[in-house]
Design a binder for these strands. Structure first.
Length: 561
RNA sequence: UGGGGCGUAGCCAAGCGGUAAGGCAACGGGUUUUGAUCCCGUGAUCCCAGGUUCGAUUCCUGGCGCCCCAGCCA
């Protein structure tokens, strides 16, 4: 964590932190212990990042610890591959759980003992009803449920049945263990919730050891208690489960008294974060995979080139509260630019090339011109880039008949070529469609490096690449995956896919230093931050646009300026 | 005539009875060999209506609106 990040944390004052602070002040908590509890059945996304940053952040700020605990209670959905990818993602985000890697399945023995305990106390019973029958007896949101005919089974019979469930005597779905709470409760979670079910599935960690598995409700709070978690932070949809969480803690001989607190999950405009929808995007081929740079997954963000520090910063800036929210992705973009502005080296790259011939430049002559790697950071040093008679400039930097506020190339206008010379456009050649294909310019030899000795100013500076030193590349430009803020608000979310979320440019020209790029994101001056994609091949780099630079000219143009 | 949660500027979000922080966005302006960065400036009476109080975004009452819950998912 950087100093700036630490300072921000120092002043952070969300409701979770104020609860923790109060608990410490009142002596209720000696050491703060939190946990990030993913189910290993999918990839982590930026919504999980909010939870990770919160849990690890709170622990760090208060000198406690944060566990990584997998809630692996449903072997039919969970896979080892996700256990690995999730750990990699959390590490990449910048967090370390030290020796506290836990699994709910580590606690299966103890959980089972506690199930028997509840049975002996008359607080749980084995129900022979089918799933359909249980559903029917649960009642509705407005009507109370009805008690199961098996609800008053003697404890001894329940115990025998539970043991036989565990021993594998019954087929899947034949019986369940239920808590004996209150079928008339307005809170459906208290209408005798299922604690254990029979699942004939091989578990990624325990293999064939078990054929009964605890539900989330029975596993989560008890795992918290076993691990000494003090503050169990989860999202709002679990608020209804808190009475059950507390009931179990109250009725079991657990070694500690964890407390659950809920906060609002992150919603990001112009994207989707639900597991179900993300799966559809991947499986139906709307994106190239879980790590498609347009995906809000950590894998996707990583591949796009988003620095983990930017995600941490974003997670802190959105805050933690209990109100539903829909965060503007412009905030994430800002955090990314903010992180990259300080660190990314600058380079010149032409995305949509337009050839320029400098008519008064001698044929065959090449000059090496110094260029700063980061004008905002003198320590970043400089490099030399070749300049010659033929160069490429950006197609958008030329207009034959420009509006007054256009500060770039146009017939008769003089501009500065970044780090090179002033040039004046003296002619245009166009193709049959009237599209410019070549600009004829003259340069002023007195302006080497970009300053005129006579003090004259030019309004615009444009980037360029020497045509005699080509480093061709493919560049992929990304935009929001969905064209509307709330995909699916009016029908199928797939109807809202943005058809222009990916634009592939095949004829880009990079300055020679980019022919074999490193791994770090760089800024293509005046355009944005870009990072090499794993699809790069020798002699043919592929760059992903991480985020575009702010573009006030685009705004002026959009307003008809 | 179920239970739970939430409503402060376009978007997040502080505020905990004393007269509305901050960030993003937007819009002005300055600096600038990136129309970038950086720097300055501009916006709310707090869902509504009553009430308590010298004073309410903060307390009370009543409305209105939005979200979550009827998996042997998490």
């Amino acid at each position: 964590m950087t100093v700036a990040e630490a300072e921000r944390d120092e002043s952070a004052g969300d409701f979770v932190r104020s609860i923790v602070r109060d608990d410490i002040a009142a002596g209720r908590t000696a050491e703060v212990v939190t946990r990030f509890p993913p189910e290993p059945n999918g990839y982590l996304h930026i919504g999980h990042a909010k939870s990770i940053v919160l849990n690890f952040g709170v622990a760090e700020e208060f000198g406690g610890r944060c566990h990584l605990r997998f809630d692996d209670t449903n072997p039919v959905k969970e896979e080892t591959a996700f256990i690995d990818s999730i750990q990699a993602d959390v590490r990449w985000l910048g967090y370390d759980w030290a020796e506290h890697l836990h699994f709910a399945s580590d606690h299966f023995d103890r959980l089972y003992e506690w199930a028997e305990y509840l049975v002996r106390q008359g607080k749980a019973y084995v129900d022979d009803s089918s799933a359909d029958e249980i559903r029917a007896m649960r009642g509705t949101l407005t009507e109370p449920g009805t008690e199961s005919p098996f609800r008053d089974r003697p404890a001894a019979e329940n115990l025998d049945l539970l043991r036989r469930m565990r021993a594998g005597e019954f087929k899947e779905g034949a019986r369940v263990l239920r808590a004996r709470i209150d079928m008339g409760s307005g809170n459906i979670n208290l209408r005798d919730p299922v604690l254990y079910r029979i699942l004939r599935a091989s578990h990624p960690r325990t293999g064939e050891t078990w054929c009964i598995y605890p539900t989330y409700d029975f596993a989560h709070g008890q795992s918290d208690a076993i691990e000494g978690v003090t503050h169990s932070l989860c999202t709002l949809e679990f608020a209804d489960h808190r009475p059950l969480y507390d009931w179990l803690i109250d009725n079991l001989p657990v070694p500690a008294r964890p407390r659950q607190y809920e906060f609002a999950r992150l919603n990001l405009a112009h994207t989707v974060l639900s597991k179900r929808r993300l799966i559809r995007l991947v499986e139906e081929g709307h994106v190239a995979g879980w790590d498609d740079p347009r995906m809000p997954t950590l894998a996707g963000l990583r591949r796009r080139g988003v620095p983990p520090a930017a995600i941490r910063d974003f997670a802190r800036r959105i805050g933690v509260a209990r109100a539903d929210n829909l965060v503007d992705p412009a905030l994430l973009d800002h955090c990314i630019r903010d992180a990259l502005n300080d660190t990314a080296e600058r380079r010149l790259a032409v995305l949509r090339p337009l050839k320029v011939v400098i008519e008064n430049w001698p044929e065959g002559r090449t000059e090496m011109l110094p260029a700063r790697n980061n004008p905002n950071d003198p320590g970043a040093g400089s490099r030399e880039i070749p300049f010659g008679r033929e160069i490429w400039v950006e197609r958008d930097d030329f207009m034959e008949d420009p509006p007054r506020k256009f500060h770039r190339l146009a017939p008769g206008r003089e501009v500065r070529l970044r780090y090179a010379y002033f040039v004046t456009c003296v002619g245009v050649e166009k193709d049959a469609d009237g599209e410019p294909v070549l600009l004829r310019c003259t340069y002023d030899p007195e302006t080497r490096g970009g300053d005129a000795p006579d003090g004259r100013k030019v309004r615009g500076t444009v980037h360029w690449v020497s045509a005699a030193h080509p480093a061709p590349a493919e560049v992929r430009l990304y935009d929001h995956l969905f064209s509307v803020p709330e995909p699916g608000a009016n029908g199928d979310f797939l109807d809202d896919l943005n058809p222009d979320s990916l634009v592939v440019l095949n004829d880009c020209m990079l300055e020679p230093s980019l022919a074999e790029p490193g791994d770090a994101p760089v800024q293509f001056e005046r355009q944005g931050y870009f990072r090499p994609d794993p699809a790069s091949r020798a002699g043919r780099p592929v760059f992903n646009r991480v985020v575009a630079l702010r573009d006030s000219w685009a705004k002026i143009r959009a307003k008809g300026g």
